[in-house]
């Protein structure tokens, strides 16, 4: 993005990727109470938080492929929270989700910046007409891709062997649970793109404030993950 120093973009990738990774680690580790045990928390993570954070950063930075970088950072942080047997698969699924985001929103006709400008110009209603259905589709596709990715790679990575019949049995579940992610996307995308109070001109934040804030925020996310999951990491 013209006007934003590349180092600021890198710092933004680390900061927002870390925040996303923290959410994945903490919310992904929550065991739902009885009755809600089958509720797919991943749908909220992908459709609400993942899509929301990626859309928001695309809005304020306007940089293509930045979100893939954030996905890599988030995946790397997720790697350090040993929840579930195949941590590598969960980490790679986050990267896959960010890649799907890039493939959707790098289309010029779906430019988040132009929708944001439209909202700022008093045409929020017109932008909503596009963003709500787009959020439904994006939330759904991002979640379904991430979920399917883990179902394919977990048996391969853990050595139990990929069985096509097992995968076929889980496909209807993946497609059905995507319903929640679609609903989350319908809220997350318009909110991340149009809420004016969230607007920040990244290029105008003072150098000192920007880098101190980014460094402190990123460090806090990593420290929290290590503090929360250290006993698991050390095998205690």
């Amino acid at each position: 993005m013209e006007g934003i120093d590349k180092r600021r973009i890198w710092a933004g990738i680390v900061l927002f990727g870390s925040a996303w990774g923290l959410l994945e680690c903490v919310l992904g580790s929550i065991r739902m109470p009885g009755g809600l045990e089958a509720f797919p928390m991943g749908a909220v993570l992908g459709g609400m938080f993942g899509l929301g954070i990626m859309s928001y950063t695309r809005r304020i930075y306007g940089v293509m492929w930045m979100q893939l970088g954030m996905g890599i950072v988030a995946g790397f942080l997720r790697f350090w929270a040993p929840v579930g047997t195949c941590v590598v698969c969960s980490a790679l699924a986050i990267v896959a989700e960010s890649l799907v985001f890039e493939l959707i929103f790098n289309q010029s006709v779906l430019s988040i910046r132009s929708f944001s400008a439209e909202g700022a110009g008093g045409r929020a209603k017109a932008a909503m007409k596009t963003l709500v259905p787009l959020g439904i589709i994006a939330g759904y596709v991002i979640y379904v891709t991430g979920y399917a990715f883990t179902q394919v790679f977990t048996p391969i990575v853990t050595g139990s062997g990929f069985m096509m019949a097992d995968f076929a049995s889980v496909v209807p579940l993946i497609l059905g649970r995507g319903f929640y992610a679609a609903l989350c996307g319908a809220v997350a995308l318009p909110a991340a793109v149009l809420i004016q109070q969230l607007d920040v001109d990244v290029a105008k934040v003072s150098v000192r404030k920007y880098y101190v804030g980014a460094a402190a925020g990123s460090a806090m996310c990593w420290a929290l993950v290590f503090a929360l999951f250290l006993p698991r990491i050390l095998g205690m």
Binding site: V132, P133, L134, I136, I137, Y140, P172, L175, G176, R177, G178, F179, A182, L183, A186
Partner: peptide, 14 residues
């Protein structure tokens, strides 16, 4: 497309 996603996934979920 969004309606198709919601209806399709909603029915599958049900």
């Amino acid at each position: 497309a969004a309606v198709a996603v919601l209806v399709g996934s909603g029915i599958t979920l049900a």
